[in-house]
Amino acid sequence: MNIFRLTGDLAHLLAIIILLLKIWKTRSCAGISGKSQILFAIVYTTRYLDLVTTYVSAYNTLMKIFFLGSSFATVYLIYVKFKATYDHNHDTFRIEFLILPAVILALLINHAFTPLEILWTFSIYLESVAILPQLFMVSKTGEAESITSHYLFALGSYRGLYILNWIYRYAMESHYDLIAIVAGIVQTVLYCDFFYLYITKVLKGKKLQLPA
């Protein structure tokens, strides 16, 4: 474990907590893409299957349980509890166009052709594009509540910090995983446009407005 990965995991934890609190406190999931949250639930389910087979550390196990539980809780809040506030009209990204290519790519490019490894690879590829429905929804509505933009900033930072972690691990432990690194770079790049808007607008107290 290193400081980059720890702060990355904490940023990830913070993002999930911000989202859960926003939906729970405002009793509304307006502006939130349910489709992205479904993709995240799929990502954690396919990635953390080893929860029952391998024990890495208490931290690792606890975080996996939290990510799994919170992702399903978020999907439940959006599609069941606060269904009336779910914005169907703006959450229209076709997630099959993200899932299928991730499945195909995982079957073609992986470290080992075993079920657990393929599922892990699929989850890495899917996570890199899982935020697209949410970014698409923000671009369609043309704006995002400031709490939603804080959520996105924390979520985008988490994988950006992981990139620093991978550089650190390569330098210190000569350990690297190209699949995770390439997907992590793609994932972080997808947020760049948003990061620019967040830093130039939201941090100045303005609302996050996308150029119409």
């Binding site: 990965r5 080893d50 890495v56 550390s57 080992a112």
Partner: peptide
Amino acid sequence: KKEAQVKDEL
């Protein structure tokens, strides 16, 4: 082929 070492990252 890289061996599928233990995945210790989240």
